[in-house]
């Protein structure tokens, strides 16, 4: 009897190991193991990633310390918004945004083919082999800013937190969509790492309250490229500030995500190589 149970458990473990999640975990383990060969550099890089993330909040603090402010937003409210933005980035960059550099470098070297011949989805393989441990520094930076802001703001009711979590899931979804677009571009725009720059600059709009932009820009950042969902909507929800046209914004995020998936697989289908 015991033997049957232990065999079942083993079968289950084996199943889990070879599932998509298991492959992903294996990718994380391999990445961490190889990065640990240069621990000093790893710690330094992670620290730098954290410091880089604090750039936006530092600018905010400097603005407020100079007696200026963003209309309708207190300093800790802006820091909360930026903390949410950094949290979203801190989750995306280490866990799946590595798909971008992984795709660009593999296409450039010709090793993208090696992922294509594996008996798994190319999307899963591209993500699993691109865990970026250094970017955990971004997550630490995000947690730090979010924590400091929350500590200095009044406690929020439960329903605000629930709405916030729903919006935050959309924020991550949006990041994933951005990753898909960039990775897709990396297939056709060979060796161009500056694709990141385009993305990072566009994302800058998400780091500040939506209200500081003109109406036309607000429309673009809500419905066309819904960057406002990255942080502005979740922060407003958590702070109990009114959010307008929420459903339209969420729908636009879903469309953006589906468009990202379509674009990525379309680019993969168009990919040609001579074997690296």
């Amino acid at each position: 009897m015991m033997q049957v149970i232990s065999q079942n458990t083993r079968e289950k473990m084996k199943g889990l190991r070879y599932s998509g999640f298991g492959v992903y975990i294996q990718g994380i383990k391999s990445s961490l193991a190889s990065r640990m060969a240069y621990r000093g550099d790893f710690i330094m890089s992670m620290f730098i990633m954290m410091i880089v993330e604090l750039g936006g909040p530092v600018i905010t603090l400097i603005i407020y310390n100079n007696g200026a402010s963003f209309p309708g937003w207190g300093v800790y409210e802006v820091l909360l918004l930026q903390g949410i933005f950094l949290l979203s980035r801190g989750i995306s960059f280490p866990f799946f945004m590595g798909i971008v550099w992984n795709t660009i470098s593999r296409v450039q070297e010709g090793t993208f083919d090696l992922l294509l011949i594996k008996p798994r989805s190319i999307l899963l393989m591209s993500i699993a082999s691109a865990f970026d441990s250094e970017d955990l520094g971004k997550l630490i930076g995000g947690i730090l800013v979010f924590g400091i802001a929350m500590k200095n703001l009044p406690a929020q009711p439960l329903h605000n937190w629930i709405t916030f979590f729903i919006f935050f899931i959309f924020s991550i979804l949006l990041m994933f969509a951005f990753g898909l677009f960039m990775a897709g571009l990396g297939i056709v725009w060979i060796g161009n790492y500056r694709i990141y720059d385009i993305f990072m600059t566009v994302m800058e709009f998400g780091m500040y309250p939506k209200s500081i932009f003109t109406k036309s820009f607000q429309t673009i950042t809500t419905y066309i490229i819904p960057i406002s969902l990255l942080a502005s909507y979740p922060a407003s929800a958590l702070l109990g500030k009114p959010n307008t046209n929420v459903l339209l914004a969420l729908a636009s995020a879903i469309v953006f995500f589906l468009a990202g998936l379509w674009f990525y697989f379309r680019m993969v289908a168009n990919y040609t190589s001579s074997g690296g």
Binding site: A68, F70, P71, T201, E204, I212, T214
Partner: peptide
């Protein structure tokens, strides 16, 4: 690519500071 990224970055700065200078 800077032809695309720099104007966007500048626009962000423009909105930030325009908003800040509304108050002071």
């Amino acid at each position: 690519i800077s032809i695309f990224t720099q104007p966007i970055y500048f626009l962000v700065q423009y909105f930030i500071w325009q908003s800040v200078f509304k108050i002071s």
